[in-house]
């Protein structure tokens, strides 16, 4: 089968290449772009470890063909920190609040929480739990993940207020 041209923006950088159409976005990111932050947990669209941001929407990259992502703007966990290495408020909050144990689910959790806080900057605990219901964690029992997202939400809104 013929390869197709690939052109998309990943973490702010324009990426061009070629790929077999059956390549899944998660494989393109991990194996072609060497962005191994997004993980493959289930490969069946259940766990959310492969979550990335695509044109401002959280999606499971194990269930998107690379061609479907052509022309889109992709953000992975690698694009979350600032250029000088300053961590995003969510990354700091997960670290400070023990929002992870083995860390396998964390890139997907943070990428999803990032978009959730854009959609709803001041979520209730219930809205957080519902908002991350597509992301599974086998270690933490979610308690500290929810707490970390609450702390990050506060931090992000106080930074925003200070700027205004």
């Amino acid at each position: 089968m013929s390869e197709i041209d690939i052109s998309m923006t990943i973490n702010g950088q324009k990426v061009e290449g070629k790929a077999d159409p059956r390549t899944l976005l998660i494989h393109f990111l991990r194996e072609d772009q060497l962005l191994t932050g997004p993980h493959i947990g289930c490969d069946t669209t259940h766990c959310g470890a492969c979550t990335v941001d695509m044109d401002g929407l959280s999606v499971k990259s194990c269930t998107v063909f690379v061609g479907q992502a052509n022309g889109k703007d992709i953000l992975t966990i690698e694009g979350m920190a600032e250029a000088d290495g300053t961590l995003h408020a969510l990354q700091t909050a997960f670290s400070d609040n023990h929002g992870l144990q083995c860390g396998f689910c964390t890139p997907g959790m943070i990428t999803r929480a990032y978009r959730l806080l854009q959609e709803n900057p001041d979520p209730t605990e219930e809205e957080i739990r519902y908002g991350i219901s597509g992301n599974l964690c086998r270690c933490t029992g979610y308690q500290n993940i929810v707490k970390a997202i609450q702390v990050a939400a506060k931090e992000l809104s106080s930074v925003k207020e200070a700027a205004e």
Binding site: L57, V59, G134
Partner: peptide, 9 residues
């Protein structure tokens, strides 16, 4: 139906 990520697509 499903979860937020799945409903986005």
């Amino acid at each position: 139906i499903a979860d937020p990520q799945i409903r986005n697509l």
